[in-house]
Design a protein around this nucleic acid. Structure first.
Lengths: 169, 169
DNA sequence: CACTTTGTTCAAAAAGAATTGAACAAACCC
DNA sequence: GGGTTTGTTCAATTCTTTTTGAACAAAGTG
């Protein structure tokens, strides 16, 4: 009962290592944990879908890490469950989404939009507070600043769809 | 010898607190440390430039933190040293850059471009390694993937100037 | 020069985030 | 039901990053 899904069971070969490291660095820039990069990287360079167990063994990470990592990658739309061949396979295998459009879209939806939304809410509260300041000079200054923040977020909101459009070829 | 630069010396008032927290959250999304958000936030909501000491006292952070935070903010182009009034002032005061264009430009230059560059370098090495794979099917697959990565980075490189242009009004 | 004021540096401590692993659930099989 | 295989959850641990604070430099002042 062994599982050499791709021709190799343990230990990444040097090229796989290079790719995994590339993605580890990549996701760190995005503020995502290392394991996410490892998992996605290995899937990205695999010709066949891999199971959770494959990931655990090949990357030397815990089942917990692999499970949580896959969950997040799924929520980002960066991996999907592969269509099982027969119906006789109960283990699920994962394959990467490799279109930049999808990856960027998922990241924006899951990681950026929510922050923009909560940012807007905070600014609204801020505007209220600023309105209540007695001193009119000071109030004017504060309202200016708040307005500037509103503009920032508006710009952010406008730029996202454009990014998505450009990255969708 | 006291320094109530802005009318208050200690303790942020509720509005200042709200703004600082807003920026603390904001910079965390960008993967920058909390202190950066605190410092920029307080400067952003101050009508007059503040000194390192002002920041230390008002934010309850260490001199070390304030010094390093200001250094980073300067390198990002997010704060600048204020023109000293007379010449009789040896302490330096800081004020925020409040144009989104500048902030985004600095972030792209300091945090994004370098990663894109090093990413390109890694992909080049990757391409070499992939070329040397014996099995021609496997080599074909790997080269496809590498090419895809190259496209991703190219797209990234193309999108940055567009973002900058849009955010510059 | 001795003394103060302002700011930087960096090793050590604290805070925070990710990973582990063991316990648990769910689904399948005999 | 009892046993196995697959996957999830979450408190405890480990690892990373940030912050602190004390020592140090630099520059001004009397």
């Amino acid at each position: 009962m062994d599982h050499p899904t791709d021709g190799s069971t343990h230990e990444l070969d040097p090229l796989q290592r290079q790719v995994v490291d590339f993605f580890v660095d990549g996701v760190r820039v995005l503020g995502l944990p290392r394991s996410i990069g490892e998992i996605y990287g290995l899937l990205f360079i695999s010709r066949v879908p891999l199971s959770l167990d494959d990931l655990v063994h090949r990357l030397n990470i815990s089942k917990g890490s692999a499970s949580q990592g896959l969950r997040m990658l799924k929520s980002l739309g960066a991996v999907r469950e592969a269509e099982s061949n027969g119906g006789a396979e109960r283990r699920t295998y994962y394959e990467p989404a490799v279109e930049l459009k999808r990856l960027v879209g998922g990241f924006i939806r899951e990681q950026i939009r929510p922050h923009l939304e909560s940012g807007k809410a905070k600014i609204n509260r801020l505007a209220e507070t600023a309105q209540q300041v007695e001193d009119s000079e000071q109030r004017q200054f504060l309202c200016d600043r708040v307005e500037r923040l509103e503009n920032w977020l508006r710009s952010g909101g406008r730029v996202l769809p454009i990014i998505q459009r450009i990255l969708g070829q």
